[in-house]
């Protein structure tokens, strides 16, 4: 498989969209690794008692889901900066979609900027963000 290089990337390119696994199993594993095991993330019923429609995906997990998408798009790249705004809840065990697009390129630094979005199953925007990605020389 050809590995994406800086020279292959153009402003306006889309990153291949993905449907990440936000099952209770994955979210619980993440929360355990992050020492972030709160009921609103790992227990649907408890989350409902807090006023959520169901358990919610931690914001910091959604950021890392986007990072994994970037690494699949450009293997070997280095994400120098990622900036995410958590605008709405993403529900555990729901179908969410991730997308991205190249919005800037810097030939001297061999970096690209991308917009990132995670959309909830009902069409709401859950996360928006940007990242600066450095390609190997």
């Amino acid at each position: 498989m050809k590995v994406l290089s800086y020279d292959d990337v153009e402003l306006g390119d889309d990153l291949p969209g993905e449907i990440p696994d936000v099952s209770m199993l994955k979210v619980t594993a993440f929360c355990t690794a992050a020492k972030h095991v709160f009921e609103r993330f790992v227990d649907h019923e408890a989350a409902r008692k807090e006023g959520f429609p169901a358990a919610i995906v931690p914001g910091i997990m959604s950021q890392s889901l986007l990072l994994a998408m970037i690494h699949r798009w450009a293997p070997g790249c280095t994400v120098r900066k990622i900036d995410t705004v958590f605008r709405g809840t993403l529900l555990v065990d729901s179908k969410v979609t991730m997308s991205g697009a190249v919005t800037d390129t810097d030939d001297s630094a061999r970096t690209v900027e991308v917009d990132l979005v995670i959309t909830a199953e009902d069409g709401r925007t859950g996360v928006i963000g940007t990242a600066v990605i450095e390609f190997q020389a």
Binding site: D14, G17, E18, I19, P20, T97
Partner: peptide
């Protein structure tokens, strides 16, 4: 909307 999403 583009229908290009895949499950990793």
């Amino acid at each position: 909307p583009k229908n290009t999403t895949t499950e990793p």
